[in-house]
Amino acid sequence: MKISLTGAVFGAVMASAVYAGEVLPTAVAFTDGAVEQSLSGMPGDAANGRLIVGDKKKGNCVACHQVSDLADVPFQGEIGPPLDGAGERWSEAELRGIVANAKIMFEDSMMPSFYKTEGFIRPGKAYTGKAADDTFGPLLGAQQIEDVVAYLTTLKE
């Protein structure tokens, strides 16, 4: 009994090492623009990611991108590339890096950095028109980023 309990504890420790917990925006490790490690320590939920991508108060990705899967969301943008086929064009790690901070991979990108909290010139407080205060956080949380990435990986041509 003692051996199997030790084995169970060891297995739990190893499993938690794979999903080590939330990575703070200031601690994200980029490699050529890609982010290998999950930002939340948990797998993403593609269904929730779909909602975030189409929600004009959350990710609002459709303000700049077209997504055929979200044809019911009106007024999709044409500034960024269509997201159809994103799951074939980029790996999960590349998509995570692009959503977290596209400027690392694409220096001249107009895309907002959804998981960044410092290095701004004049940050504002969400959509209030006021200056940021001590509650300033990223546009999307770590799990929301993982959910968006999970959804984007499903978009195949």
Rank of each mutant, 00 (worst) to 15 (best):
F114Q: 08
A142V: 03
L152F: 14
A131E: 06
E118R: 08
I121G: 03
D133M: 08
G137C: 02
G119T: 01
D134I: 00
V148M: 09
T117I: 05
K116V: 00
P138C: 03
L139T: 02
Y151P: 02
G141E: 07
T153S: 04
A150S: 09
V149L: 14
P123E: 04
P123H: 09
A150P: 12
E118I: 00
V148D: 14
L139K: 07
V149G: 11
A131Y: 15
L152T: 01
L139F: 15
D133S: 11
D147H: 13
F136G: 00
P138T: 11
P123Y: 10
Q144I: 02
I121Y: 13
I121S: 09
A126C: 01
K116Y: 01
P123N: 06
F120M: 09
G129P: 12
T128H: 06
P123Q: 09
Y127A: 06
R122D: 03
P123M: 05
G141K: 06
A126T: 07
D147C: 15
F114S: 00
V148I: 07
Y151R: 15
G137H: 15
A132F: 10
T117P: 01
D134P: 00
Y115R: 01
T154L: 12
F114D: 03
A150T: 13
P138I: 03
T128M: 13
K156L: 14
D147R: 14
T128N: 04
T153N: 05
P123D: 04
T154I: 09
T153V: 07
